[in-house]
Design a protein around this nucleic acid. Structure first.
Ligand SMILES: [Mn+2]
Ligand SMILES: [Mn+2]
Ligand SMILES: [Zn+2]
Ligand SMILES: [Zn+2]
Lengths: 131, 131
DNA sequence: ATTTCAATTTAGAATAAGTATAAATCTATT
DNA sequence: AATAGATTTATACTTATTCTAAATTGAAAT
């Protein structure tokens, strides 16, 4: 379970996700692969994304939209979504351990972690809004 | 936009969600409707769930599973999912305002709120585990 | 170099959740 | 009773993703 086999297609998919600044969906990845001159089967892109996710080279994000997004940052962090333009940005401010401890106490669960999606309006949309 | 028209089907769907202790999916709601002797069209259940959500009588939850779940508690709260049995419980401990403020500062967003899904192992699964 | 065999890719079918459509039915008002 | 708007129904459609079975690849083993 340690070895990683990066085929041409897996490497190309990984490159797209690594180079992306916007947490692309599988469909985004497909389009960008075509832009770079590749033409892999639909299923291969999904297989590659899953493979890379399993190997912890990328993360799959479920942000409450219909399609999953993918992220080459695998360190623990959260996300913020602009309610106006849909942009997704990083949140690195860590959730207080103390809050998680209180949740553990409240629920009786052993808490492993949390997925947080913050919602708001990004700076650009805010400045456009007050016209 | 103020009046609420609770038809038989909408009331029955609402009753299911209100009586549920487990944040049911649309499919769960459909099964329980049948158990109670109803037989509404597939689309009607989805329409009713959306109608009730729009009227703020219930909430739709996107917890990162394939199907949405529904919740008759509409006050601000979060959820915790058991990684072992999949159970979903309530989290009423509020997110620290201070954390949201730091996220706003970090990202430049105007923060409106946050959806949090805590992950962990519930008390029952924990006790079963150490056999 | 050729054979072999597992891993991978491919094309396309299948699935799951939810939405859209258009006809039928219900319900309140004239 | 007639009308009209809202709702329900059955069914078709969409979207995102997974599954399947055949074809291809590529690294050993001969
Ligand atoms: Mn990220
Ligand atoms: Mn709840
Ligand atoms: Zn924005
Ligand atoms: Zn459990």
């Amino acid at each position: 379970m340690k070895t990683i086999n990066l085929t041409t297609q897996r490497q190309a998919v990984y490159d797209i996700v690594r180079d992306a600044a916007d947490h692309p969906t599988a469909a985004d990845v497909m389009n960008r692969l075509v832009e770079r001159g590749h033409s892999f089967a639909y299923g291969t892109v999904y297989n590659s994304l899953r493979y890379l996710t399993d190997k912890d080279m990328i993360r799959e994000l479920k942000l409450g939209e219909t399609a999953s997004r993918y992220d080459a940052r695998t360190d623990d962090h959260q996300h913020i979504v602009c309610e106006v333009c849909g942009k997704v940005d990083e949140v690195t401010t860590a959730i207080p351990e103390e809050w998680l401890a209180r949740v553990a106490e409240e629920t009786g669960y052993e808490v492993e972690g949390a997925h947080i999606v913050v919602e708001g309006v990004c700076a650009e949309c805010r400045s456009k809004r007050k016209k």
